[in-house]
Amino acid sequence: MKKSYLPVLTIAGSDSSGGAGIQADLKTFSALGCYGMSVITATTAQNTTGVWSIHAIPVQHIREQLEAIMEDIPPLAVKIGMVNHPEVARCIADLLAKHPEIPVVFDPVMVATSGDRLIEFDTIQVLKETLFPICTLLTPNLDEATILTGIDIGETEHMEEAAKNIIEAGCKAVLIKGGHLKNEVVTDLLCQKEQDPIKMQSEYIHTQNLHGTGCTLSSAIAAELAKGNPLPKAVKNARTYIIGAIESGKDIHIGQGHGPLNHFYNPHKQIIHEMD
């Protein structure tokens, strides 16, 4: 029997400050014992206070990055992050549709923690048409869920309505993250097609260091799916990880704005599994 690491792929934008995007994804994969790989869709000039500029990677080069990975190291799970052009969405969907056995977690990055919008308006409909049908799970925060559905989510009661709307748009499952409500109890809602919703709650952690939380959670879910966990358990394990990463890094000072999480507060040993 041959031995291998658990390869997990992130298709996302680069964060020059290291707190979000592919940098956060690769840290998360490593912290959870997986082998991280990346396809870069865009580079950003940003820091903890905001996004200065975004530079799109040519679609042909994105395709070549993805084809190179799939040919040599097929991942056990994929996380998708920043997709800010329609042609990029079509490219990713076209290639991943050829590998339906690979679970895909899509974090529809539309608004940065600083409030900067990261996606073009005409891309949203293309995301629904191309990426939603191939995704195992969509992980929007409240702002992103509102952009996707037009539903103003001011209370936790509105989350289920928005989740139903997103599933009707073609998703198999959606995790709506309720942290932006800033209640003392954070409520996340996992809805799967033709199954009862699962409400997950935790105590709100008061901190400025929330840069990259969405990227980290979605990549943690992908890592847990790569380990073979069913979706509800993967989400629960990922939430446990991110709560610890926020808690352990809440009083650290890096930068002048929204600081990063402590991704390596409790690193797992790299997992090695046997292959045929």
Rank of each mutant, 00 (worst) to 15 (best):
F132K: 15
P133F: 05
T136C: 13
L137M: 12
L138V: 12
T139D: 11
T139H: 10
P140K: 01
P140V: 00
P140A: 01
N141H: 10
L142W: 05
L142A: 08
D143S: 15
A145I: 08
A145Y: 01
T146K: 09
T146D: 09
T146N: 13
L148E: 02
T149W: 01
I151W: 00
G154F: 04
G154W: 01
M159E: 04
M159R: 04
E160V: 08
K164W: 05
K164S: 12
I166C: 04
I166L: 10
I167M: 05
E168H: 00
K172W: 03
L175A: 15
G178I: 08
G179W: 12
E184L: 06
V185E: 01
V185S: 00
T187V: 13
D188N: 14
D188Y: 13
L189F: 15
L190V: 10
L190G: 07
C191L: 15
Q192I: 13
K193I: 04
E194T: 08
M200N: 05
S202W: 12
S202P: 05
E203D: 11
H206G: 07
Q208W: 11
Q208F: 10
N209S: 08
G212H: 04
T213G: 03
T213Q: 08
G214S: 10
C215T: 06
C215R: 05
T216D: 09
L217Y: 09
S218V: 00
A222F: 02
A223D: 04
A223W: 00
E224H: 15
L225K: 05
A226Y: 01
P230M: 05
K233L: 15
V235Q: 06
V235T: 12
K236D: 11
K236P: 03
N237C: 10
N237T: 15
A238L: 12
R239G: 03
R239C: 12
R239T: 11
R239Y: 06
Y241P: 14
Y241E: 04
I243N: 13
S248L: 06
S248N: 14
G249N: 12
G249F: 11
G249H: 07
I252F: 07
H253W: 11
H253R: 14
